[in-house]
Computed example of a mutant assay.
Amino acid sequence: MTRVQSVRSGAGRVVAAAGAALLLVSGCGGDEDAAGGREDASASPTEEVEEPESTPAGDGAPADDAPGTEWGTDVVHGDGDGDGAAGPSELAEVTVTEDDGFDRVALEFTGAVPDHITTYMDPLAHGGLGTPVELAGDQALKVVLVGMVEETVNVASEPTALVPEVRGLGIFEGELGVGLGIESPAGEPLPYRVSTEDQRIVVDIAHAEP
């Protein structure tokens, strides 16, 4: 429109007027195209904003689970918290308590928590000879404590219906065995989990499938 207004001759004004009419007509069509173009342009950013909506999932860890391993019946290998500088660990006492949905066996130490292995064993045995050990209950869970010096296992509380007996199995090549007799309602190994906290190893045995 500015270029049209700058034409000074009469002929130029006629041509300018005609040109202005054409520009007006074409401008209407251009507005429609531009509007359509703006609609398309506005649609594209919307799609781009929706794409990043998928966020990484969380770790999925149950909020009510204790730290450590998950429930299961397979062998569990656990790391201790000592570096060996303070010497071998000593087992101070073992307590058995009944909780809601599981029984807890806590092995408490005077020093660092040792490396440990927990597994069901049938028949239960410990040492080079592999002599079977009889415990109360129909299942036996064995906890092996690595780097120990004392054989004595002090059970500081009465056993429960689920864990009727806890017994020291002696030391073999620096590994102290602790046997947990378990009375399973179905006669099958019950799920358990293992955790370490405050100078102790905690073994939880479920009353049934969690």
Rank of each mutant, 00 (worst) to 15 (best):
E47V: 13
P67K: 06
A161F: 08
L107S: 10
G170K: 01
V202N: 13
R167C: 08
P67H: 10
L135P: 00
P62A: 01
M1I: 09
R13H: 06
P56D: 09
A17E: 09
D74N: 02
L135Y: 03
A112K: 01
R200A: 15
H126D: 03
Y192Q: 10
S89M: 10
A66H: 11
A106F: 05
E51D: 13
A156Y: 08
V14R: 08
A63M: 08
G78Y: 03
R193L: 03
R167T: 13
F172C: 03
V146C: 07
A11E: 12
Q5S: 03
V202S: 12
G12L: 00
V14G: 01
A106V: 15
L124Y: 09
P67L: 09
P210L: 02
G128L: 02
T55Y: 09
A125W: 07
E70C: 07
I171L: 04
P114A: 06
T118Y: 04
D198P: 08
H207V: 10
G170I: 04
V133P: 02
G130F: 04
G174W: 03
L91G: 13
G12V: 00
R167D: 13
E209Y: 05
D79L: 13
V178F: 12
P159M: 15
E98A: 13
L23C: 01
R104E: 14
E188C: 02
P114E: 06
P132W: 01
G111N: 14
G101Y: 07
G58S: 05
A43H: 06
V149E: 13
S195M: 14
A66L: 14
G111E: 14
G87A: 04
M1D: 08
D99T: 13
A66T: 15
P52K: 01
G29A: 08
P159R: 08
F172G: 10
D138C: 07
D74C: 03
G27Q: 05
G87I: 09
G60D: 04
E32Y: 04
A186V: 12
V149L: 09
G168A: 00
A136R: 15
E50L: 08
Y120P: 01
G187D: 00
L180I: 15
I182S: 06
N154R: 08
V75T: 12
L176G: 11
T110I: 10
V149K: 06
T46W: 07
G10S: 11
M1N: 01
P88R: 02
A66V: 12
E173I: 00
E48A: 12
E134P: 04
G84Y: 00
G187Q: 07
S42C: 08
V133E: 11
P45C: 06
Y192T: 07
L169W: 02
D100K: 08
V25F: 11
